[in-house]
Amino acid sequence: MLLRSVFGKTVRDLRWPTFWVALGMGGMTGYFAILFPTYKSIIDLNAILEKMGPAAKLMGASVGDASSLVGFLHIELFSMILPALIIAFAAGMASGFTAGEESRGTIDVLLSYPISRRRLVLEKAVAVTLACAVSAVVVWVMALGGAAASASPLPADKLAAALVMLVLLGLDFGAGALAISIFTGNRAASIGVAIALMVVMYLVDALAAIIDVFNNIRPLSLFRYYMGSDPLRNGLNLADVAVLSVVALFLLVVSLVAFERRDLAA
């Protein structure tokens, strides 16, 4: 059934990785949502944030945040863990689109069938986008389930907005890893560079709150657009959506053009 097209085959290849990523992200979010009232009653989270002082800002938190589930999820998951997971997933998968087929040696046979190089990359890109979206939906369902179970308020629309930004951020790094893998033909290198960029961008965005120099270069960090407008509280900021979307599309187009032109590795 799934072996009808490159898209279907990619979905088939991605089903287990997607399952685990979705379960991991959704499980964690649901877990925190269920246990939030318990945490809150045992530990004075805001007092901890206060003691941390500027360091709390590194986690994207302000004092007072931790008194609601929304603030708690923002600090605990959306600021670092969820982006790291979805970026690792998207970059890991996208880096294998062509470099994986090339290093396995399967690209010669695959492209001897009537499929253009462009279509090959696009079908795989759609499959990874779908996998990220499915993961986000799982997170959404499990988070809302957990929030309902613990009777903590969590607005479904704002959560969806934050997850849209999360998926877009993942796709940006996925498209980046794809571009690097196409230019270098090296899958490991492209994942490494994507992860390194993620760390640098994260730090730039986090340190901007306490160090001026980083504030100046903050627009270069994709994390600025991802959570900068706090979608978990404020919903979607269309300008931020546009920036993340344009970056992903630009990197995809660069990848397509580069892949179209170059020799395939034997």
Binding site: G105, D108, V109, P114
Partner: peptide, 16 residues
């Protein structure tokens, strides 16, 4: 693409 519709290929280092 038109060629690939009418040609088939088995590479030397066949990887599947």
């Amino acid at each position: 693409l038109a060629i690939d519709r009418r040609v088939s290929y088995v590479p030397g280092e066949l990887a599947l």
